[in-house]
């Protein structure tokens, strides 16, 4: 990634654990990445890989107990977010970094006008008059292509795609520098997903924001991301620019993810599924976390954890055998 530019948000060696009923869930195990101005980083992984825990850590929203951020740093414009006093964190959330969740219904208050929910977030974060906040909330609605005449309607009167657009308007109301989107289009139909993605891309260009896009859908990533990090069992196994990951795939897990997808262009009679299952995060395998499912695994893989190696200036991979592996 471009080293000349200062990152807006930087995560260094983040470790998050959950302590549940005597066992320790190792959710995030030493993750590092940076977000740059106007760029989108895609964080890709399957259920239980630690994607959402990472996102919640960025906002200091990991439920505690049982969750504990054990170590690491989260630097927003050079300030460590993890050591900020609670009062400043409240300013940071929403003002500097905002989040969109997967299910729009659970982020909206069912008994409050949608417009007022946007106005509320403006009033909390900025010192503006009621009329100004109302006016800005209406303009936010228009910017996500909802007529402001619908300001006084309730969430249940909106369809799924429109609800997600309201949530996006809420998140952008205070013009944050960083937007975290946790599977923002997973609950939507494809034609609506296309509309929402298109709109998000325009807004990001307009506001020059950085975005962390959390998803399991490599198709969505290809649409919207500049950089990609692949996460498996709480660790980033491969990261790079979108071209690095899509055209020069190195890690066997990333290769497996691509091969599991049915291809629309070239028919295959059988999919190359990754054998086995995600490891249990309270009982992770030794060595490389992926070795029990990897067809290239050697004895070294089962005992020693691979180091992060540079494939190129932008591309890193954590695998002992990546040089010998070719994507079919």
């Amino acid at each position: 990634m471009d080293t000349h530019e200062q990152p807006v948000l930087e995560v260094k060696d983040l470790v998050v654990r959950y302590y549940v009923e005597g066992s320790v869930v190792e959710a995030v195990n030493g993750i590092s990445f940076s977000l740059y101005k106007g760029k989108t980083l895609g964080l890709i992984g399957e259920t239980g890989a630690g994607k959402t825990t990472t996102a919640l850590s960025l906002l200091r929203l990991v439920p505690d107990p049982p969750g504990v951020i054990e170590s690491g740093e989260i630097l927003y414009k050079g300030k460590n977010v993890l050591s900020l006093p609670e009062k400043e964190v409240r300013q940071y959330r929403g003002n500097d970094v905002a989040m969109i969740f997967q299910d729009p219904m659970s982020s909206l208050n069912p008994v409050m006008h949608v417009g007022d929910q946007i106005r509320e977030s403006i009033e909390i974060h900025e010192n503006v008059s009621k009329y100004e906040a109302l006016d800005r909330a209406k303009r936010m609605l228009e910017s996500v292509e909802i007529p402001s005449s619908r300001y006084y309607e309730y969430p249940h009167q909106f369809s799924g795609g429109m609800k997600q657009r309201v949530v996006i308007a809420m998140a952008l109301a205070c013009s944050p520098q960083v937007l975290i989107a946790d599977e923002p289009t997973t609950a939507l139909d494809v034609t609506i997903q296309a509309q929402v993605l298109d709109m998000m891309r325009q807004l990001i260009d307009e506001y020059k924001m950085s975005m962390l896009m959390i998803t399991h859908d490599l198709g969505v990533v290809a649409e919207i991301c500049d950089f990609v990090a692949i996460i498996y069992a709480g660790e980033i196994v491969e990261s790079g620019t979108i071209e690095d990951i899509f055209n020069n795939t190195k890690h066997p897990y990333t290769i497996g993810l691509f091969n599991s997808l049915p291809d629309l262009d070239s028919p295959t009679s059988r999919l190359n599924a990754i054998p086995g299952l995600m490891p249990n995060p309270s009982d992770l395998p030794t060595g490389c976390r992926f070795h029990p499912r990897c067809q290239h695994a050697t004895t070294l893989c089962s005992t020693e954890k691979p180091h992060k190696e540079d494939v190129s200036a932008t591309h890193t991979v954590s695998c002992w055998n990546y040089k010998e592996i070719e994507r079919q």
């Binding site: 795609g161 494809v190 997903q193 509309q195 298109d198 198709g219 290809a222 979108i242 691509f258 629309l264």
Partner: peptide, 25 residues
């Protein structure tokens, strides 16, 4: 046509003639 063009594909550099549908069901 619109449904097919709306599927995000896990590939780079494919020509995208996306047909965006207006409105909802």
């Amino acid at each position: 046509k619109a449904l097919l063009s709306a599927i995000p594909q896990a590939k780079l550099g494919i020509k995208k003639d996306r047909i965006l549908l207006r409105g909802e069901l």
